[in-house]
């Protein structure tokens, strides 16, 4: 099947999304105003370290935020529907049907006391009340076949503990796709798997994406995975998107020091043998009392006075590439001055 763009335009539009957790110690601004678009059939990677707010952001699209977490501002529009204003009921119809999600740890994400078949059929019948049990089972088996599971008849009757980690993640993917959603959110789907299985799962997801033309948001802290599967990338740090662009932009023209840091802390096949990996020094900011300036400033090698006082604006760098860093602002100023001087 070829990539057929039946639907073009925006599948998902997130505007200035803000999510806070109201803990006894104070408000934690887990997501502090992020915006991005995703077109139909596009794969976007969200990269960032633990606690950068990438999962929280995904959960708010799904309406899965648990108290004390709360969306406090911004909008999410998915396939033309406003997600945030939906009621609890509407939300549970929306989940699984329009958007579905697969999680990091396939070992704990399947209910241990029900068979795989039962859990798959349940997902289908939650959104399709009229479908008969036999039909649902047939569909479930088709999905299992799609995700590359053998011996399906027998597998349907087995319990999660009888599956390996990779197989469970395949089941999770089958479950996510069973209602043919428009958007799939994959929250670190390969992190808990070992490397060879990781590659298989990525291959599978790419394959399915090509076949079904759905949009995927791929959350990960592994840049290698991003390069493998994504069309565009958002880099998140401390609840903000610090750089956004196509995979080429991010990998070949990184413009934010944090992206630089991420790239140079990643092992490369083409690196010279004596080249050392460079870690990003320091630790992330305290999200309870975020500083006024750029949150990355204290760990930044090129930190300037202004970085400590003011949040940098986004600087457009051509195409979809933009970055929030005072260095880029300075560059532009310098460029302008040179032009005027000439």
């Amino acid at each position: 099947m070829n990539k057929e763009k039946t639907n073009t335009g925006k599948l998902l539009e997130v505007k200035d999304l803000r999510v806070s957790f109201f803990t006894p110690a104070g408000e934690v601004k887990a997501v502090g105003g992020i915006s991005y678009d995703l077109n139909y059939g596009e794969v976007m990677g969200i990269v960032g370290e633990s606690g950068s707010g990438k999962s929280v952001e995904a959960y708010s699209i799904m309406g899965l935020l648990q108290s004390p977490g709360k969306v406090i501002g911004g909008s999410i529009t998915c396939d033309g529907e406003d997600v945030i204003s939906k009621s609890k009921e509407e939300m549970s119809d929306f989940r699984g049907k329009k958007v579905s999600m697969i999680f990091q740890n396939p070992m704990t994400c399947l209910n241990p006391v029900y068979t795989i078949g039962n859990q798959l059929v349940e997902a289908l019948r939650a959104h399709n009340k009229t479908i008969s049990k036999a039909e649902a089972e047939k569909k479930a088996m088709e999905m299992l076949e799609l995700v590359g599971i053998n011996n399906i008849e027998k597998r349907m009757k087995q319990y999660p503990h009888e599956f390996s980690g990779g197989m469970r993640q395949r089941v999770m993917i089958a479950m996510g796709l069973i209602c043919s959603p428009k958007l799939l959110i994959a929250d670190e789907p390969t992190t808990a798997l070992d490397v060879t299985i990781q590659a298989q799962i990525l291959e599978l997801m790419k394959d399915i994406q090509r076949k079904t033309n759905m949009g995927i948001i791929f959350i990960t802290h592994n840049l290698g995975v991003v390069a493998e599967i994504c069309d565009k990338v958002s880099v998140m740090y401390a609840g903000k998107i610090v750089e956004q662009g196509t995979v080429e932009d991010i990998f070949y023209r990184p413009s934010h020091p944090y992206t630089h840091g991420l790239l140079s802390s990643m092992p490369r096949v083409d690196a010279e043998s004596y080249e050392r990996l460079v870690p990003i020094e320091g630790s992330p900011v305290d999200m309870l009392n975020p500083p006024d300036g750029c949150p990355f400033a204290p760990r930044c090698k090129q930190c300037m006075q202004v970085c400590l006082n003011k949040m940098p604006p986004y600087v457009e760098l051509g195409g979809d590439h933009r970055s929030a860093c005072w260095l880029r602002v300075k560059e532009q100023i310098d460029n302008k001055e040179e032009q005027t001087n000439e």
Partner: peptide, 22 residues
Amino acid sequence: GQDYIKTARAKGLKSGPIIFKH
């Protein structure tokens, strides 16, 4: 609080089946 409840919610199940089944 378990992950499989998160999955069940992500599947779009209503609170009834989530609580009494899962």
